[in-house]
Simulated assay, not measured.
Amino acid sequence: MDNNKLSTKPHYQILDGLRGVAAIIVVFFHLTEPLASSRLTNVVNHGYLAVDFFFLLSGFVIGYAYNDRWDKLTISGFLRRRFERLQPLVVLGMTLGAIGFYFTDSTIWPLIHTVPLWKLLVVMIIGWTILPVPLSMDIRGWQEMHPLNSVGWSLFFEYIANILYALGIRKLSDKALACFVAMAGAVLLHLAVTSTNGDVTGGWTLNAEHMRVGITRTIFPFFAGLLLSRVSRPTRVKNAFLWCSLLVAAVLVMPRIGGAEHLWMNGLYESFCIIIVFPLIVYIGASGVVHSQVEVKICRLLGDISYPLYMTHYVLVYFYVAWVSNHKGISLWQAWPYALLTFSAAIVLAYISLKLYDEPVRAWLREKIK
């Protein structure tokens, strides 16, 4: 049976909304990050954990959507559906990043104006595939696997998780999957507590250390979400969207734990959030019911713009980071008008990308890729 003709299950509206809440906080994290003196002082200190939350949400939603469809669905059909959903905005983000590359003039990127056009185009085309750019092709100087759109690294690992799910992990029994997730959780805990930075950050550079971090950050939350979709029995929770949104915000904005003297404490906090708090939030969100048309519209809008916002906002953040770097010592209070302008532009860009590009392209792909 053609995978495009599978019936569509109803969305978890609250989970859609929570994805949008987390995406917005990611933008704020990236806007406050260049103003912080160190990783210990960022105002939105744990904003990077939104990526781990996205992985868990993704595993849960994919499990909900596909676990009972494999009698009618092929591996290639599943991967085509994921390609259709993910890839258009990957291409757009890399393209916009390439267009803006030479305009982000700053001393922190001395390589930019020495990069020949052919090299920029090669990096962009590699970026379109979401495959990592080798370090020898780093044109920005940050040692990122996607120097034209920094956030692309998480999509690389998202694809890996999807492929692993399709190729075999979906076939594990609930008990076997629970054992697999428990082992992945132990590996994540060890990484976070023993990290030289006292956190789980990493995954964006094509080297052994970052690949280990990226795989570890992906495997537990994605497959914990898959397990949760199988075994959870949601109950009705009042005001679930409000409470879950507050929980997500509290986790991501939480100041650094333990300081520079006790880095392991922050690692323990992050492990607790990823292993315990995030699954709890998803469970409560899946158990909640929207109570008004206003709440429905808010969740739908947040869900619709979440992925476009995540995939396009860093194109604007590059300009903002360049401006901050050219105004050494600027404070958050001095920078907030520029930060607010960048945030507002990111929301507008995400909505335009959704309506004028992502939705039409996905509709076209549904017709062409069968």
Rank of each mutant, 00 (worst) to 15 (best):
D2L: 05
D2V: 00
D2A: 07
S7M: 13
T8K: 15
H11W: 10
D16W: 00
R19S: 13
V21H: 10
V26N: 05
P34M: 03
N45R: 07
Y48R: 11
L49S: 03
A50K: 07
F55I: 06
V61G: 03
G63H: 10
Y66R: 00
N67Y: 11
N67W: 02
W70T: 02
L73S: 00
G77P: 04
R80F: 05
R82C: 09
L86Y: 01
Q87E: 14
P88K: 05
L89C: 09
L89T: 04
L89M: 15
G93M: 12
G93W: 10
L96V: 06
A98N: 01
P110V: 11
L111H: 06
I112E: 02
V122N: 12
W128E: 03
P132W: 09
S136N: 11
I139F: 07
I139D: 02
R140H: 05
M145F: 05
N149A: 11
W153K: 01
W153D: 08
E158C: 06
L164M: 13
A166R: 00
A166E: 01
L167A: 08
L172A: 12
K175C: 09
C179K: 15
F180A: 11
A182Q: 03
L188C: 04
L191W: 06
L191D: 02
N197S: 14
D199Y: 06
T201N: 13
G203W: 02
G203H: 07
R212N: 14
I215K: 04
L226W: 01
S229G: 10
R233I: 13
T235F: 14
R236V: 14
K238Q: 13
V248C: 13
A250R: 00
V251N: 09
V253T: 14
P255D: 08
I257D: 01
S271W: 10
F272E: 06
I274E: 13
I274K: 12
P279R: 10
I281E: 05
H291R: 13
V294D: 00
V296Q: 12
L302G: 01
S306R: 10
P308N: 09
L309P: 06
M311N: 04
Y314D: 09
V315K: 01
A322Q: 09
A322C: 02
A322D: 08
A322H: 06
K328W: 04
L332F: 15
L332S: 02
A335H: 05
W336L: 08
Y338M: 15
A339S: 15
I352P: 00
L356G: 11
Y357G: 11
